[in-house]
Design a protein around this nucleic acid. Structure first.
Lengths: 158, 158
DNA sequence: GTTTTATCGTTTCAAATGAAACGTTATAAT
DNA sequence: ATTATAACGTTTCATTTGAAACGATAAAAC
């Protein structure tokens, strides 16, 4: 008797596919309209929340590899979207923040990202949306117990 | 006024993190206990559903790149887990199926994967689990509308 | 029947990835 | 104070990646 593992009812599989599709759909827009790669967008959006931030802060908040963050930050600085200053009290840290140009771009990108998300979530009722967040929360907390804290979540895992 | 994009309430972001964590937790087990990488596991599990399958069938079912599938299949064949035969009526196709060894391994791996998933899902009630599947289904269908059909879902997208 | 055109799986190659080593700066231990 | 240890961000380098080119087979067009 074969074990009853149906892939389309296997959570890791379905989550992976869903997550990829969502990322792909959104990434296409970032790329085409604003020239941002995914890692760049992640860094950029993170700074949209809170500024200034060190590279390491971004690593923690995005679960990206620090080399990847370093490269994305460099590209964003080179593109004139971020300012990078040394931290006054700790020379190891960077103080990353939006440049004027970065702030302007964020003001364009963020509403569009939100609108896109709203459109996606419009297939759900308010109650279902609330459920969704609750479920994600619970699952993430549960799975985090199995992972040594602060393990970088590499891309090669899916 | 800054746009109100809170990343921990932004679905693409949360899905990506959750998906990565789940994959990481599970991948660690596959790797340590059975020596299977993620792409290998994906191919392997897909064949667990249905046999024989061509490489292309696997590409369609897993949303993996065909080069990646090709390489994973080669490794699995080299490891003696799969049999690869030419298709009798179409020389372009391969007929991939479990070898004896592959079937034995699957009989070991699959129940463990299911048990792990059950443990993860044990934080949810039956009703919540049903909700989860329904939500995933709806979202995936919705987002699929924005993606040109059969776009390969590359890893670099997260 | 011959010639396109399409499909399948592999291979090639440039780009992206991430583990580890590194230089630099800060903190802890003695 | 000196020394050892740790943290931050960059760089190096071997591996993985996927887009495109490829050879081989099949189907379609003519």
């Amino acid at each position: 008797m074969p074990p009853d593992l149906r892939l389309n009812r296997f959570l890791p599989y379905r989550l992976n596919i869903l997550s990829k599709k969502v990322s792909l759909a959104l990434a296409t827009r970032y790329q085409e309209r604003f020239g941002l790669s995914i890692p760049e967008w992640r860094v950029f959006a993170t700074l949209g929340q809170e500024q200034p931030l060190s590279s390491n802060d971004i690593v923690e908040r995005t679960a990206m590899d620090k080399a990847k963050v370093s490269r994305a930050v460099n590209r964003l600085v080179a593109a004139g979207l971020l300012d990078r200053q040394p931290h006054p009290h700790d020379q190891r840290l960077l103080r990353l923040s939006f440049s004027r140009k970065g702030r302007d771009l964020y003001a364009q990108v963020a509403p569009e990202a939100l609108a896109w998300e709203a459109q996606l979530l419009s297939v759900l009722t308010d109650a279902e949306r609330a459920q969704l967040w609750a479920l994600i929360e619970r699952l993430e907390q549960r799975v985090a117990e199995e992972i040594p804290a602060s393990t970088p979540l590499s891309d090669s895992l899916d």
